[in-house]
Design a protein around this nucleic acid. Sequence first.
DNA 1: GACGAAGGCCAAGAAAATCTTAGCCTGACC
DNA 2: GGTCAGGCTAAGATTTTCTTGGCCTTCGTC
Lengths: 311, 311
Amino acid sequence: MEPAGRPSPPSLTALRAFEAAARHGGYVAAARELNVTPAAIGTQVKGLEAWLGRPLFHRLPNGLVLTPEGRAVLPALSAAFDALNGAVRTMRAVGRPRELTLAALPCIAQLWLAPRLPGLQAAFDLDLAILTRDEQPDYARELVDLGLYFGAAAPAGCTAVVLARDDLFPVCAPVLAARLRRPADLGGATLLHDSVWREDWPRWLHAHGPGALRPAREATFSLYGIALDAAIAGSGVLIGHSALVGKLLAEGRLVAPFGERVVTGPPLRLIVPEGGDGRLAPVVRWLKGEGGPNSAVPHDSLEPEPVAATG
Amino acid sequence: MEPAGRPSPPSLTALRAFEAAARHGGYVAAARELNVTPAAIGTQVKGLEAWLGRPLFHRLPNGLVLTPEGRAVLPALSAAFDALNGAVRTMRAVGRPRELTLAALPCIAQLWLAPRLPGLQAAFDLDLAILTRDEQPDYARELVDLGLYFGAAAPAGCTAVVLARDDLFPVCAPVLAARLRRPADLGGATLLHDSVWREDWPRWLHAHGPGALRPAREATFSLYGIALDAAIAGSGVLIGHSALVGKLLAEGRLVAPFGERVVTGPPLRLIVPEGGDGRLAPVVRWLKGEGGPNSAVPHDSLEPEPVAATG
DNA sequence: GACGAAGGCCAAGAAAATCTTAGCCTGACC
DNA sequence: GGTCAGGCTAAGATTTTCTTGGCCTTCGTC
């Protein structure tokens, strides 16, 4: 019953499943994007191949590779779905002009964005939806108007505005700082880690630390915000991100015992999907204005120099 | 459960239903295009409006009118679906390079195309699918590679090649022709009609007929091919279309009793959707070559003049 | 002014598409 | 050689989508 002859088009679901699988090079990733199981993707792709009458993927033992046919149609398909998603985006923007969806790293949402939310809402009368996600969303596919992430470059199809440079340096509660005069003193302290930023301490120590450091204790937190709370509570020393801890430093709840010794990470960027509606521009401008003054880094010497993107 | 907050996109089905409804300006037409019932379209559109949070159509007593929101998003949506359909078209072309789908008016399929099919298949080794439809398909939406219709102009998004001019004139079996020396003689004959070409006789009579004609009898057929069979059988006089009856005239099975008295209708055109794959070009060329010689009109005076495409 | 056709709306149930679960298989990698 | 990741399949469940049938309004016709 498969070569029915009637040129009834394949289902849109199948096309979308194939497009996602082809773009990601695998069912698992495609399934994640579409919020289904890999088996569902596989079924749809198989159906599409049946409709076509020939395979779209070579099933190699270690994964999928597009056939020439598949490779030939993927660009057009992807472009079409991008257009479709763009249409949906403008549709929502037209339908709910006051709604704005922001995606951000959880810690950015908590530490950078949250304090600025009242001001943002006061300035624009917006209904804000905050989406906290560890990975940047696919702006072409998801209904996200803006993103807030650390990154060296803008994702494809987006422009990016640097909101604040990001310098990494140890921070701790004032009571602990008294005992920390030189990096070597960290040997007697508890080092606090964030699980997704495991490299923060190694990077800083590599640049500024004593040769071999064996800290007294270590603790790892799955959320940077919690780690910061622990640091404030005096539990140990955490690597602070200047873009996020500026306010806490200004308030004196945290101090930077080795203030001038920093390493520089990718800056905090505001990601603006291209082709967005005009109502975004003032918001972008406002957020950009917020970036500078309020995220004050504690070292004047670092301020004037504009940040260059690193590979 | 409708304002869920999660920006999950609307279903592709709903988008497609809305797009079709907006394009056609009504659920009924959209339902026809998508092969569902109007109620299904209505449900989907309602769901999309619920997702959006505001209506896309004004429900006026006499029909639907797009709201400003709807009007704002329609172009982008239509373009996206056009792109999607284009992608599917190239997909199928890539997957089955030997397959070609031709849409044609039933009478054209029977009288013009059928005799040429063997030659076409011999020339190109194609798997042909013939789709007979009274109305031209929407080439951007349906998997149709070529169309054969009478028409004054090419549909939007298509180019057209004139295959043959179309002149209308009475035809009948030779035995009947003896009694028809002047148009006034038609008063004693049976006039054969085609139900979709009801205007053929009036048009011809208006141009060439006697003032007031009361034919002896009339008969109407729902298919032109059947009407032609009736004419061949001597049942009456039919308006012949030069593009379709050339062969029958050449064989002598029909004659044109008032040969030089014709009215000209829209020419027979080959419709070529733009953006088609390259494999179409030779087929178009072949069909164009077929148009001239084989569709011989019975009057030499008409032959030499080449037909120019009209706007 | 009654009537029928056309078009849209709705609710309930049917049908179909889609998705998940669970188990199997493969090659890759330690 | 065990484990893991990724793809395949079948069967059954779930969700989405569609149809049916009835109601309502308007419009054009007689």
